[in-house]
């Protein structure tokens, strides 16, 4: 695939050579020649699948249709209708929102707290702190989930061993219906707060020092400076982080896949995980596509709302 794309590039080169500014189709040709490798790959493997999964979600596509995709039958909105009455889907949706609603604000708040401490509270070892807090962000979620499952092991995990030293008998975190999701949320915050920290540090550095001086002349304390200078000035950064983190968290998958298999009793089953189960364990790709599309729409709507809501408040 990449080879033909490259050839096309070289073929188009003579056309590009004779292009002079202001000449119509030659300029178009040059532009499309530069765009060609991206457009072809992007069209086949991203744009086409997005459209295809929309079509798939209206079919009863399953295992046997893999050999002859055209042979699948359209079932209209059946898949979506079934989703509405599928208690497991609602459970997965509820779990995903639980994860997002608790996880996102905590990740941002802790990230902002550490960013403020690193960029304003201290003057030395800033790089060491930045690197240390950022470390989990770049490591594989699978590896982290494997390590955390061991950390939270009821008998020999570090967490319960430390608790035992304090005379407390630790629970079986991941096997508990009430504690499994909070455990996963804690791990997600641990993994992602470094990203929030780095972005917030950049945002904080862009705030002019004069504003704090003016606030201090007006007699503002630390909290008031934070409330009336930092927060409003940081609004675009907070908005950006809110959207990015929410979209990421809505796609929760690896953590329950490795740590709990969605259990106990579906307490950590997420929408993406339910889609995976339907599509690749029960081979109901049509139904799974409907789940994927619902998630897609939720992501789009939430991103749109967050932009709308926070922008308009600004004006």
């Amino acid at each position: 695939m990449s080879a033909p794309a490259l050839t096309r590039q070289t073929v188009a080169e003579p056309g590009a050579r004779s292009a002079t500014p202001g000449r119509g189709w030659r300029q178009d040709l040059t532009g499309w020649a530069f765009a060609a490798p991206f457009v072809i790959l992007f069209g086949v493997f991203l744009a086409l699948p997005i459209a295809a999964s929309f079509v798939l979600s209206f079919t009863s596509f399953s295992q046997r249709d893999l050999i002859n995709p055209i042979g699948t039958s359209f079932v209209g909105v059946d898949n979506y209708a079934r989703l509405l009455t599928d208690p497991k889907f609602w459970k997965a949706l509820g779990n995903t929102f639980y994860f997002v609603i608790v996880g996102v604000p905590l990740t941002l708040a802790i990230g902002l707290l550490i960013a403020s401490a690193v960029s304003r509270g201290i003057t030395r070892f800033r790089t060491a702190f930045r690197v240390g807090y950022y470390l989990p962000v770049i490591t594989s979620i699978v590896a982290i989930a494997v390590v955390w499952r061991f950390l939270l092991n009821p008998d020999i995990g570090l967490v319960n061993v430390l608790l035992a030293n304090l005379g407390i008998t630790g629970p079986d975190w991941l096997a508990s219906k009430t504690l499994a999701m909070p455990s996963i949320i804690t791990m997600a915050i641990w993994r992602n707060l470094g990203f929030a920290m780095v972005v917030f540090i950049a945002g904080l550095q862009a705030i002019p020092v004069m504003l704090y001086e003016a606030a201090s002349i007006d007699g503002a304390g630390r909290w008031q400076a934070f409330r009336y200078v930092t927060l409003p000035m940081l609004r675009p950064t907070i908005l950006f982080m809110l959207v990015i983190t929410t979209i990421g968290y809505l796609q929760l998958f690896e953590e329950p896949f490795v740590m709990t298999d969605g259990g106990p009793l579906d307490a950590t089953l997420s929408v993406t995980m339910y889609m995976y189960q339907q599509g690749f364990e029960f081979f109901k790709q049509g139904y799974a596509s409907a789940i994927a599309y619902v998630l897609f729409v939720i992501v789009a709507v939430i991103a749109f709302l967050q932009f709308r809501f926070l922008r308009s408040e600004d004006a």
Partner: peptide, 20 residues
């Protein structure tokens, strides 16, 4: 528009495509 498309949405059609 595709900057923020969830990875899950292209998973199934890409699998069908690759199978074929």
């Amino acid at each position: 528009a595709t900057l923020m498309v969830p990875a899950g949405i292209t998973l199934i059609p890409n699998f069908v495509l690759m199978r074929n």
